[in-house]
Structures are given as C-alpha cells and as structure tokens.
C-alpha cells in the first residue's frame, strides 16, 4: 500500500507542478478542489457503509463511551508540549513554536492564521509543520496502526476527521471510525482558539 501511496503522491505532485508551471491542461481547482473533495466525500460514504454493516462496532463504542474524549485531549496537550520542546531544541521563540504546532495538522487553517497573527515567516512555518503532519500520517499509517488503534489517531491530530480518516479506518478497522472522527472533530474545533490564545502570548 505504502508503495502505491508514494508513487501516486509523486505522480500527483509532478502533474500539479507541470500543470501550473508548464502546460495548463486543466484548471488547478478541478483537481485540488473538486476531485479532492469529491473523492473524500465518496470515501467517507464508503467508510460509513463499512461501519454500518459491522454488527459489533456499536457494542464496542458503547463500552468505550465518553472516555473516547480523552484521546483528543491527550493529543492536544502532547502536540503543544512537543512544540515547546522543539522551540528549545531549535533555539527559536518557544511560544511561536507552540503556536505553529497548535494547528494539529490543519495546514489550510494554521498557515494563514499564524501568518496573520505572527507574520509571514511564522505563517510559512505553520503551513509546513501542519502539512508535514498530514503527510506523515498517511505515509506511516501501515506502521503506526501496528502500535495500537489510537496511535495513528494521535499522529493525525485534527486531520483524522476527514483527510486521513479513510486510511486510518482501512488499517485500524471500522471500529476506529468514531474515535478517529471525534478526535479530529474536537481538535479542529480547538485549533483556531489554541492558535489565537498561544499567539497572544508571543
């Protein structure tokens, strides 16, 4: 699977680069917006079917219950603490490093928002940190899912409610759907507030 993912990702990257810098075959939004959203929604629909068909999933969720909210809480704390440590290690502004990490992988939010609050350079960092998180989640899911069903969810941060949900469910099974979705959902709600709050300490 990982071989195909890397190959298709590289193909897509090359196609996107050539299309915008060399010969424009299609408008960029057709692929990066319409095809992307369309395939995502179709995939979530299929994931829903797989989930609904499985007789045991509901019972498993009932057993776990509200405890499931522990996951996004732990991911949020871990992420910001990781940003703090990285700030020290890199010798850059520690609050800035925490702010960029608080996108939790949602790079289309973190890039522009951090850019507005702390300037273009931090914005670029916010974009890159969170984009790399999404990429890492997809590329390593076959490995991280072996460490337990919550590990890929922890790696994915806010992305586990949409873009990385399908790959996580494919590897961790349909019972991971609710954990993954709810964790990503909570972190997506928290991300803008966390970024703004941390940036105000800068």
């Amino acid at each position: 699977m990982i071989k195909y993912i890397l190959l298709v990702l590289a193909l897509g990257g090359a196609a996107g680069y050539l299309n915008s810098n060399w010969a424009r075959v299609v408008e960029n939004v057709w692929v990066s917006d319409y095809l992307s959203s369309g395939s995502l929604l179709l995939l979530l629909f299929i994931m829903g079917i797989t989930f609904g068909v499985d007789r045991e999933t509901l019972a498993k969720i009932r057993r776990t219950g509200a405890k499931i909210l522990v996951v996004p809480f732990a991911v949020g704390l871990g992420t910001v603490l990781g940003g703090l440590v990285a700030g020290f290690v890199l010798g850059i502004n520690v609050v800035g490093a925490m702010t960029v990490s608080a996108g939790f992988g949602w790079y289309t939010l973190a890039g522009p928002l951090v850019g507005q609050l702390l300037g273009a350079e931090w914005g670029a960092l916010g974009f890159a940190v969170n984009f790399l998180r999404e990429l890492l989640t997809i590329l390593t899911v076959s490995l991280t899912s072996r460490g337990g069903k919550y590990v890929p969810v922890a790696v994915g941060g806010a992305t586990t409610m949409d873009t990385t949900l399908p790959v996580i469910v494919r590897y961790s099974g349909s019972e991971a759907l609710i954990t993954s979705f709810s964790s990503g959902f909570v972190l997506s709600l928290v991300a803008p507030f966390a970024i703004i709050a941390l940036a105000s300490l800068y």
């Binding site: 990702l9 990257g13 196609a15 299309n19 692929v31």
Partner: peptide, 9 residues
Amino acid sequence: FSLGFSIGS
C-alpha cells in the same frame, strides 16, 4: 493523487 497535485501546483 489530488493531495500530490495540490502540493505540486
């Protein structure tokens, strides 16, 4: 593929 495309473009 569309993720790769968005990065490349």
